[in-house]
């Protein structure tokens, strides 16, 4: 199937998001098609997290539209959006430090039935054997890499159709970063559509199909990831050559 024939699963149309008087997102539009990996890159403070938080319903855009799976979701609460299969694995992991590993996964499946949770839990323990070993451990005592695994597994417990990952490689050693990207590719292989925000632009562009570049609240560039990887401006600003 060629790219343009794939169904649009998420479309963000000209959204504006404010923090009080601060105009953080100034008319951002983007779309994600089924089975794609799309990446959103940009400097610190560009508004990437704000965009993801607005899509998932934590923040309310002041204007603009967000359509997911043919339904208008802008203005809906996260508790309504998550069960539709749109999940965010947030920046900084945000696992529940005082809950056990298993309880964290339980919460990931909060909107699903007991039997579905059990099934997904087995899947997660198979995919992340480390988490199985630490099932009863308090999550706050896990290492950084393990916490990131847990955060991703927790998001997957909701069985998302579209998974948004906000800087999953942040603060991890290079070998763990590789591992995280392997998991992202694997997830994509198993049919999850992915919207990836990353500081590590090189790795993000190399796994993604398409990319958006964001600067101070606006999208400044978009295109095939492979093309952006070789674009001069992108190389200078984000790839350090």
């Amino acid at each position: 199937m060629t790219e343009s024939q794939r169904r649009i699963i998420l479309s963000v149309e000209d959204i504006h998001v404010f923090y009080g008087a601060i105009h953080a997102i100034k008319g951002v539009s983007l779309e994600v098609r089924e089975d794609e990996i799309v990446t959103l890159i940009g400097a610190n403070g560009a508004g990437k997290s704000t965009t993801l938080n607005a899509i998932t319903g934590l923040l309310k855009p002041r204007s603009g539209k967000i359509v997911y799976d043919d339904k208008l979701i802008s203005g809906k609460k996260a508790s309504k959006i998550v069960p539709m299969g749109l999940c965010l694995c947030p920046e900084g992991r945000r696992i529940f430090q005082q809950l056990t590993v298993r309880e964290n996964l339980d919460m990931g499946g909060y909107t699903r039935s007991r039997s579905e949770i059990r099934e997904s839990m087995d899947e997660m323990f198979e995919r992340f054997p480390r988490l199985k070993e630490r099932e009863k451990q308090i999550a706050g005592t896990l290492s950084g890499g393990e916490q990131q695994m847990l955060a991703m597994a927790r998001a997957l417990m909701a069985r998302p159709k579209l998974l948004m990952l906000d800087e999953p490689s942040m603060g991890l050693a290079p070998i763990l970063v590789e591992q995280i990207f392997d998991i992202i590719k694997e997830l994509h292989g198993s049919g999850v559509t992915i919207l990836l925000v990353e500081q590590n632009a090189r790795m993000a562009l190399s796994v993604a199909d398409r990319a958006y570049v964001m600067e101070t609240g606006v999208i400044t560039m978009t295109g095939k990831a492979s093309a952006l990887l070789h674009n001069d401006a992108v190389q200078k600003a984000y790839l350090g050559n």
Partner: peptide
């Protein structure tokens, strides 16, 4: 307990 620890992360679980 999740809401008590991190309200917005809890929202992301659909709570």
């Amino acid at each position: 307990r999740s809401v008590s620890e991190d309200r917005s992360a809890a929202q992301l679980m659909g709570i």
